[in-house]
């Protein structure tokens, strides 16, 4: 870049150029301005258009990369712990090498078919029209956010604040959509709050993510009525937001595994293990209005595909 030539006279004896403070200051200031703009802006942040442009440009690339590597890796192996991977290796090694390659290929197709069938079942059981989509990118843990990108966008009728689920239960909600992709905030995210109804008592509570995925992925449930004690094994379903956005009602979320009560807090706290295996997230469905016209066939509430 042009910086090089003007910097030549700044060469030190040892042959390494000292960085100009003006450049560093400008960069740091640019970062600070960007953070301030995005921090103050919230939903209507001036950075949002830039995010959309970036999403429009990189979305198809991520989609292509994901479909390119999927047959080899299989998204089911996401976030797997080393132990389960080791078990997997042991199991695989027992198989004949010749058979193994065949099984891997057909097993991949079969599992995808099963997931799509599961989605159709989910649409009929819960009574919502779903736009099918696949997970194409995952946010790294280094960013401390639990978000994924799916390959359905506004072209498929997906809009922000729609519910995302899979055949096992609630996955999250759409927070941002470009033409071909959408970003989904998983219910495991530390900033995700979902209203839930618990067990037969139908009591209301709020489920907060802990920001962890994988085996340790759990949600914390806080009940609105402090007198109620949830019991272990109770199922939790979504409470449903007004107008069905961002969460529709009656979607299974998970079951109670532990109950805590401390003298310090008046409310009981319960830990929920989600039904969805977030480490093997692949085919998901976005709850869309029944009359949505899009670039793909919808799985209708009556089980039909249109």
């Amino acid at each position: 870049m042009g910086l090089r030539r003007s910097g030549l006279d700044r060469e030190r004896r040892d042959g390494v150029r000292r960085p100009r403070l003006s450049v560093l200051a400008a960069l740091l200031l640019a970062c600070a301005v960007l953070m301030a703009l995005d921090y103050r802006g919230g939903q209507s942040s001036p950075v949002e258009p830039a995010r959309r442009v970036m999403g429009e440009a990189l979305g198809p690339v991520e989609s292509a990369t994901a479909s390119g590597v999927r047959p080899f890796a299989g998204l089911s192996e996401l976030f797997r712990s080393r132990d389960s991977l080791r078990d997997e290796v042991d199991r695989l090694e027992q198989e004949n090498a010749d058979l193994r390659s065949k099984v891997a290929a057909s097993g991949f197709d079969r599992s995808r078919l099963e997931q799509l069938e599961g989605l159709t079942r989910a649409a009929t059981t819960w009574g919502y029209a779903l736009a099918p989509a696949r997970v194409i990118a995952l946010g790294p843990s280094q960013s401390f956010k639990r978000t994924v990108t799916i390959d359905a966008g506004t072209d498929a009728g997906v809009r922000p604040d729609q519910t995302v689920l899979c055949s096992d239960g609630l996955v999250g909600r759409v927070i941002r959509a470009t033409r071909t992709t959408a970003t989904v905030l998983l219910i495991l995210d530390g900033e995700s709050v979902v209203g839930g109804r618990i067990g037969v008592s139908r009591e209301l509570g709020f489920l907060r993510g802990r920001g962890e995925v994988g085996e340790a992925g759990r949600l914390d449930l806080e009940l609105v009525d402090h007198a109620v004690t949830p019991s272990e094994g109770d199922a939790v379903v979504s409470w449903g937001s007004e107008g069905g956005a961002p969460y529709v009602e009656r979607i299974p979320i998970g079951r109670v595994t532990e109950v805590y009560s401390s003298p310090r807090e008046t409310a009981k706290r319960a830990v929920i293990e989600p039904y969805v295996d977030f480490s093997a997230l692949d085919v998901v469905g976005v709850v869309v209005p029944d009359d949505t016209e899009g670039d793909r066939s919808l799985v209708r509430a009556d089980g039909g595909v249109r």
């Binding site: 960007l34 830039a50 970036m54 994924v148």
Partner: peptide, 13 residues
């Protein structure tokens, strides 16, 4: 800015 990032922009920068 690349999806699925959702943190405040400028932090990784």
């Amino acid at each position: 800015l690349a999806p699925p990032a959702d943190h405040i922009a400028g932090r990784w920068a």
